[in-house]
Amino acid sequence: MLRTTLRHLGATAAMLVALSVLMFGLLRATPGDPVAAYMDPTAAYSAADIAALRHRMGLDQPLPLQYLDWATAALHGDFGYSTQHDRQPVRAMIAERAGPTLLLMGSGLILSTALGIGAGILAALRRDGPLDVALAVVGSLGVSSPAFLTALLGLFVFAVRLGWAPSGGMTTPGVPTTIADLLAHLALPAAIFAAGQATLTMRYMRAAMLEVMNHDYIRTARAKGVGEVWVICKHATRNALLPVVTLTGANIGAAVGGAIFIESVFNWPGMGLLMVNAVEARDYPVIMGSALVIGLFVLLINLLTDVVCAAVDPRIRVR
């Protein structure tokens, strides 16, 4: 078990280094740099203007030196300064935005898992009935709708037309933040975030339930006179949950991608919005820092999943 964990930890560290080198190389290969992004193309800039900007953004150093400087500092937890945002420290920027993203992702994942499991059980129990067909249609729509489209539609319907939810942001500007205000702002983005994830969970749960319901131990339980509710809850659902748990782990990685769209549409002040703004501004330090933190997060979740799987199933441990 220890060997398995150490091996995964080593792989995680190597992947993080590879990720940073890849990100650094790709960013420099992308046309345009932070200075190019900073300049209003309709305005006039002299060579001196541009030189001052390059100096300010630390781009007047050779590339390998820029990477070594960044990597050395990153090892000490210092990701440098943003080239925008009044040159704020990247670490502070990430720390400030990690909470809102975790709140959105966490509530979205809890909601999507609960909805997905519930709907999957119902669909399996009403196999081929009207409810199953309706849920299948909803599921197909959910899986096939891009996150940004669902988000825009949700914004239009619930914020603009119905006025049930604020149109964006995390709190109401200019008033003291309260839990109710925060929840009001969270409800719509979290629900839309959950909608996409829940449909996938529902399909997995339905398939797993159908498979489990045909097993001998379910028949045995029924033959012993165990009540149907107890059979479904205790015997079928618990066993059908295993693939869903694995899926939820994998969903966390995908959720990061989904959060980027949702946060952009709803102006949710999290990591996704930070990343999008940084990419548009070619804010290299912020992109590198955010990618590393998100990469680390996803790798740690994968590591945790692998370790848990190894603990549960001894056949996949390293020998």
């Binding site: 049930w164 109401t172 109710a180 929840l183 009001a184 702002h185 409800a187």
Partner: peptide, 15 residues
Amino acid sequence: AGGLAITGARRARAQ
């Protein structure tokens, strides 16, 4: 949940 959402929207419009 519904009440919170509606309250929040009203608060926003109450600027």
